[in-house]
Amino acid sequence: MDLLAQVPQLVVSGITLGCIYAIVAVGFSIIYSSTQVINFAQGEFVMIGAMVAAVLLAKTSLLVAFPAAVASGCLAGALVALFVLIPLKRASVISLIIITIGTSIMFRGLAQLFWGESAIPAPPFTGVAVQGYVEDREFHLFGAYIRAQELWVIGVTALLVVGMHVFFRYTLVGQAMRACAINQLGARIVGINARRMITASFIMAAGLGAVAGVVVSPVFYAKCNMGTALGLGGFCAAVLGGLGNFAGGVAAGIILGIVESLTGGLLWSDYKDAVAFVILLVILLIRPEGVLRKRAEA
């Protein structure tokens, strides 16, 4: 079969994967901005969202499962902020980062305990019921089949990214969170409760991750260890885009998803997961401040 004919299909699945990386990257950036901590539990928030959604979708409708899954993610984020990050605020940033790795392992373990090790399929949001199970609609475009669920992933990602931009740029709370990240002393003196802002940033980042998990669960299936790969991909995207730079992280996430998908489909599928890290290493060697960030911030 002609390999090149597969390219459009691979690009489509790459964009879907890249959207999830993009959301995870934004989550990394939000938490990094407010605490200087790289939260390696970020991928687990996606897993929690996906698991809760997949489990609930078997019993109830999307209208119940979606909010419940996002709320579970937010709760997990709040717990990490309130019981891990804030009590340990005197610890060095590097210890906190290592603690987030521990937290991530804990979440994964708990998920395995509660939901088992096997993948749980979730029905697509807008599928058609066929003989007892739900089949997704498909669209044909530029030589590729696009599933309705993939459009959901792309649409929801776009909505979240625009929403985050508006929130941080135009709302007072968003401005206060930015202020807290830029100058914590200045923020505290004008009456901003820094602890509350840190908690809020964790809840937001976790909520975003959980939304990503919900929309992607019909595409990838929900599995207790899915957070690791998505978290690391999102981390690479965040660093490539420049930590704290939302637009950069989103662009890097989508590019990374596409490159990974093409590598897996056309070259060596065994090395698919290594792609992100090879790119990351090369970029860190030549442009440590990230590709998409302005070189000298004047």
Binding site: T171, L172, V173, Q175, A176, R178, A179, I182, N183, L185, G186, A187, I189, V190, G191, I192, R196, A200, E297
Partner: peptide, 25 residues
């Protein structure tokens, strides 16, 4: 001075209103 360097002059002053604004998260 402890300003929010990357924010605009006006945004800096708007953040100062945080103390009396009723807006919670």
């Amino acid at each position: 001075v402890q300003l929010f360097e990357n924010m605009t002059v006006k945004e800096n002053v708007m953040v100062g209103c945080h103390a009396w604004s009723k807006q919670g998260i």
